[in-house]
Nucleic acid binder design. Structure first.
Lengths: 200, 200
DNA sequence: TCGTAGTTGTACCATTTGGTACAGACGAAG
DNA sequence: CTTCGTCTGTACCAAATGGTACAACTACGA
């Protein structure tokens, strides 16, 4: 089942990410990973220098995919905040992405504990999402300050609900909660630009 | 620095949790942990059976503390949802709790990847918080259904913002986002019971 | 054809790992 | 004092770990 091992650093890395996404990176040894990829641990050392080197590349790859996902969103600058939110949420909760989300949170936890290979993931892990979301909200009429705070809240909601979804698999309940957030945010009334934000 | 090792299973577990909270549980070996606790790995095996046995107990302990924190909240049934939210948030973001939050998220990530020792943490990890929060919201006049959805959203917000706080240490920005959520929720207007929830 | 650079297999290494065997220390109860 | 159950130190183990040395294979240009 694991014979057709990919060759070349790039293919090897892609396969490693895939493997590690579904099996966890926590307790796996170089040999286990290599065997699953159809290679020898010797090759992983050769291409990535060390186990930590491999981990670093995996982290970079995960981050890169996040940026990609985000870029695809940034291109549609004409969407309303509500559409942005819903599209983003739909993509994030695609079951096919489940393993990668899990990997993301595993690495996040590891980074919080100071793992030097995972730490870079934290760099801008919030800012990276806040900036484009905030831009979309400003387009909808929020002040820069309001937009930033609300974007930050939105990121937290997405991450928190994703954590929920991955643990409970209760998609309906989680979707309902997200819908609720969108409604509360006033994002569903693009006409009134400050519907719920100017209360205070 | 690590001589006064506690004796007895209970003390040993407490010390182990503390150590693991600040140093991560990821890559530590029994021997490292034992040495830091002033014991030998032999003792950890004796008291907890195996490394996984120790991990299981650590997970239980983390879960138990969550329940404690939650119980202290449940006792003050006369508080308004807003007060509940703010008090809870204040406790959760107490810097002294930082290491334990980090440990919680590390274990959460590990559990998502199928680690059999950490998995039990996911059991009711959402429900545990939704139930009492939902009760508080019902007291404020929400229907059970609305209350559950909103509570779920609230839990996600708390977890997401905690993740943010632990990564960025930007307490002001995170607090502002939480405040924003409380305002959006209509929790700040205890008089009007359905201010923002009956929109749809 | 040769050389050379990139790649891979085999074999090996010291170290560390979780776990065990066994003997002893300790205190309380008889 | 003896006995017994709880606890702990010493010594050890087989297995696995990350990493290395070295030889060999490949392809490709000169």
């Amino acid at each position: 089942m694991s014979n057709a091992g990919p060759s070349g650093r790039a293919g090897l890395l892609a396969a490693a990410v895939e493997y590690v996404a579904t099996h966890g990176i926590g307790e796996r040894s170089l040999r286990q990973i290599a065997a699953a990829l159809g290679t020898s641990h010797r090759m992983l050392i050769y291409h990535f220098g060390s186990k930590e080197g491999l981990l670093v590349e995996v982290v970079r790859e995960v981050e890169r995919r996040q940026r990609e996902l985000l870029a695809a969103l940034g291109e549609q600058a004409e969407l309303s905040p509500r559409e942005v939110a819903e599209q983003l949420w739909n993509r994030l909760t695609d079951p096919a992405l489940g393993p990668y989300e899990r990997l993301f949170f595993e690495l996040y936890g590891r980074a919080l504990q100071g793992d030097p290979a995972a730490r870079p993931l934290l760099e801008g892990v919030v800012e990276m999402w806040v900036v484009p979301l905030s831009a979309a909200l400003q387009r909808a009429g929020l002040t820069p300050e309001e937009a930033r705070t609300h974007a930050r809240l939105g990121v937290a909601v997405a991450r928190g609900l994703l954590l929920d979804l991955l643990a409970t698999e209760d998609r309906d309940a989680v979707d309902a909660a997200m819908q609720r957030f969108i409604v509360l945010s006033g994002l569903d009334t693009p006409g009134r630009e400050q519907s719920a934000s100017g209360v205070r």
